[in-house]
């Protein structure tokens, strides 16, 4: 499963993820959050508020994304992730984190903005 998923992710976004692949990515995200926070995976419930309940901070989000990059051998660009990953989103749950990550892989990358001539 993992090798096939890595190959799909490396082929570039958008990625068509099957249900089992989406579930695999979700659990990988849960494990990464647990590793970052140094807590058992069981403590990362779907409905946990990642910033308020679990205590994740913005540096921790970087660590989580780096673990996923390392594991799946693809970069994960913070700037293209949904706002749920930002510290200011106090209502973000683990479920919304996972949904945001899956949406990131399922959507085409945002084309880079051409440099402006102004100023």
């Amino acid at each position: 499963m993992k090798e096939a998923l890595i190959a799909k992710l490396q082929a570039g976004r958008p990625v068509h993820l099957s249900e089992s692949e989406a579930a695999y990515l979700t659990e990988a995200l849960r494990e990464a959050v647990a590793t970052t926070l140094e807590v058992p995976v069981a403590e990362i419930a779907d409905g946990s508020l990642v910033f308020d309940d679990l205590g994740l901070d913005s540096i921790d989000v970087f660590d989580v994304l780096d673990q996923l990059s390392e594991q799946f051998e693809v970069p994960v660009a913070l700037e293209e992730l949904p706002e749920t990953f930002l510290r200011g989103n106090e209502g973000a749950t683990f479920r919304s984190f996972a949904e945001g990550l899956l949406r990131y892989f399922r959507e085409a990358p945002v084309p880079p903005t051409p440099p402006s001539d102004a100023g």
């Binding site: 970087f62 994304l65 390392e70 051998e73 970069p75």
Partner: peptide, 11 residues
């Protein structure tokens, strides 16, 4: 070895 590692660390 891996392309994803040939980058500057986020930190």
């Amino acid at each position: 070895e891996k392309a994803v590692q040939r980058d500057v660390s986020r930190f």
